[in-house]
């Protein structure tokens, strides 16, 4: 849903800022992933997706499945920016009884479609949702947001085969390719390249874009949504961990970025100095 008068760059900036404020509550968190994926989420929620902020369970909505449960902080930030979650709950992030637990769960959070976190589940669920939407003659799309690490799971490729076999043109898979996993760089864990060619060989319409380039992202979303055949679509988004906060970008990046207590304020101050229109 396109919301007038606020640029996507500003949306991405706000998502980064919400995420930093949440991470500051706990003093730590998956902030590298959230900053890296902010542009992708801005393009998703404020360009591509059809949803009603005041009715997150609206039947006509595009389904957005977050397979990567630990990216919850990023999706909460997007849902806050979209008006689905209230901004004044940022201080509860990760606390007991919060609606925003560390790992995303459907039962806790409006707008969180599935319980992710056991990785490699999202795409298979998206196949089922895609089949169901088609059976219900519901024109909505189902999006599955996953990470490059999840390309290691066999279940991802089982689902990729099923999506193509069942001609699920209503399925759009988003791969956040930040080349970072728990133990190190994804390419050193289990190389998945050439990812786009693998998806193509599985019968998908594949695009690979700079995931921090909002124009490239919106163009890719448009192409995926308007494609005239029934291939499932994948957008592989190369992103930079910690994007938008240079002193964190330059840090030796890990799955779990260590940030000193006083640095949260510096990170937010840096963002505030670069607020887009």
């Amino acid at each position: 849903m396109s919301i007038a008068n606020v640029s996507l760059a500003r949306r991405a900036w706000s998502i980064r800022r919400h995420a930093l404020r949440m991470a500051e509550v706990q003093g730590q968190g998956y902030i590298g992933q959230a900053l890296g994926a902010a542009d992708l989420l801005a393009a998703s929620y404020f360009h591509a997706l059809n949803f009603h902020a005041d009715d997150p369970d609206w039947e006509g909505r595009d389904r957005f499945l977050l397979s990567i449960g630990h990216y919850a902080i990023a999706l909460y930030a997007a849902l806050i920016e979209a008006g689905v979650l209230p901004e004044d709950e940022i201080g509860t992030y990760g606390m007991d009884d919060s609606r925003m637990p560390m790992s995303g769960m459907a039962a806790y959070t409006p707008g969180m479609e599935i319980t992710g976190g056991s990785l490699g589940h999202g795409l298979g669920i998206a196949v089922g949702v895609g089949l169901a939407l088609r059976a219900k003659k519901n024109p909505a799309f189902v999006y599955n947001m996953m990470s490059d690490g999840e390309l290691g799971e066999g279940s991802t490729w089982e689902a990729a085969m099923a999506a193509s076999h069942h001609c699920l043109g209503n399925l759009i898979c988003l791969v956040d390719f930040n080349n970072q996993q728990a133990d190190g760089h994804s390419k050193d864990m289990m190389s998945s390249e050439p990812v786009d060619q693998k998806f193509e060989a599985f019968g998908w319409y594949a695009q690979r874009v700079d995931g921090n380039d909002i124009k490239a992202l919106t163009k890719a979303f448009d192409a995926a949504k308007t494609l005239k055949d029934d291939r499932p679509r994948v957008i592989i988004c190369d992103t930079k961990m910690c994007k938008g906060v240079p002193f964190l970008e330059e840090r030796e990046i890990t799955h779990f970025v260590r940030v000193a207590p006083e640095e949260w304020a510096s990170a937010i101050a840096h963002l505030d100095g670069e607020a887009p229109a």
Partner: peptide
């Protein structure tokens, strides 16, 4: 309870 607002203490 996911539709009930929370307060940051």
């Amino acid at each position: 309870s996911k539709y009930e607002a929370r307060v940051a203490t």
